[in-house]
């Protein structure tokens, strides 16, 4: 069964060491996402049109809202990996550029000796579970180097056009608003499409074209984020959180959480460590 050895939340986002032995279905994050292989079974991350190997030579970079799934061969041993979810604003505030939020040029990151050393140092700090000032510095350096590597030989043109496209249709904008307001109910795409005056297929196509993910994946991301927030910053039971999010049972919520986040919600709550500044609103 997949488990977490360490999870840390901070102003940077989230960093975790996971031992994964099962596939994580297609999902997306609002953060920039980096996955580094540490040990065990080699695996891969699948995108819509390609797959990227995850092994001791290659890591994977995933841009915000880019759909992807984690694949591991069935009946294999688990894969130990360092997983980062980086808030674009944190990266931007530390980075010298004012041109792009955390959008990677490509998904594949070749693990150079320098990158490997940074990955090991970061993993060690995470597993030691100590609050070390160096953590953010090493983390930023690792992400910066990966980010720059993904843009080598890649044209930047067109990236912002895509970003700008996200909000250009008022019906998609309206649907986003409805989703944000009705996160706690099991909204179905059919009724969402109706509410914005489109047929289901047209809505699906338009939403995917503008946001990069399907409405279902978008809603799943919102629910996962909400669940993580409640698990870490409230005393609510897993059953209560499941109920608030519209799941019919704790079991179905656990299945949803495990297949989207990678580990069970109770396991996540047990392992995660939260810096004061990660959820200042509650702390």
């Amino acid at each position: 069964m997949s488990c977490a050895l360490s999870v840390r939340h901070g102003s940077f986002g989230r960093a975790a060491v996971y031992q994964l032995d099962r596939t994580i279905i297609t999902h997306a994050h609002r953060e920039g996402h980096l996955i580094f292989y540490l040990d065990g079974q080699e695996s891969s991350v699948e995108f819509e049109d390609k797959g990227c190997a995850l092994n001791d030579s290659f890591s994977v970079a995933v841009s915000p809202w880019e759909p992807h799934s984690f694949q591991i061969p069935p009946n294999s041993t688990s894969c130990l990996c360092l997983v980062l979810y980086i808030k674009p604003i944190w990266f931007l505030e530390n980075s010298p550029s004012a041109e792009f939020a955390l959008q990677f040029g490509c998904n594949e990151v070749r693990l150079t000796p320098q990158l490997h050393e940074l990955v090991m140092r970061l993993t060690s700090l995470l597993l030691d579970n100590e609050h070390v000032d160096q953590f953010d510095l090493i983390l930023f350096e690792l992400i910066r180097r990966c980010f720059e590597q993904t843009w080598l030989r890649m044209p930047k043109a067109g990236l912002l056009d895509r970003a700008r496209l996200r909000f250009s249709d008022f019906r998609v904008r309206r649907s986003l608003r409805i989703m944000h307001e009705s996160i706690s109910v099991e909204s179905d795409v059919e009724s969402l499409a109706r509410q914005v005056g489109l047929s289901r297929p047209h809505f699906f196509k338009l939403f995917k074209m503008q946001m990069g993910v399907t409405p279902n994946i978008y809603l799943n991301t919102l629910r996962s984020e909400h669940a993580i927030h409640d698990l870490l910053k409230t005393e609510k039971s897993v059953t209560d959180i499941a109920e608030e999010l519209g799941f019919s049972s704790q079991a179905s919520f656990t299945r949803f959480f495990s297949s989207n986040v990678g580990i069970a919600p109770s396991e996540y709550r047990r392992v995660a460590r939260v810096d004061a500044e990660s959820f200042p609103m509650v702390s």
Partner: peptide, 8 residues
């Protein structure tokens, strides 16, 4: 100050 920084 950055391109596309509004939401974040």
């Amino acid at each position: 100050f950055a391109d596309g920084v509004l939401e974040e």
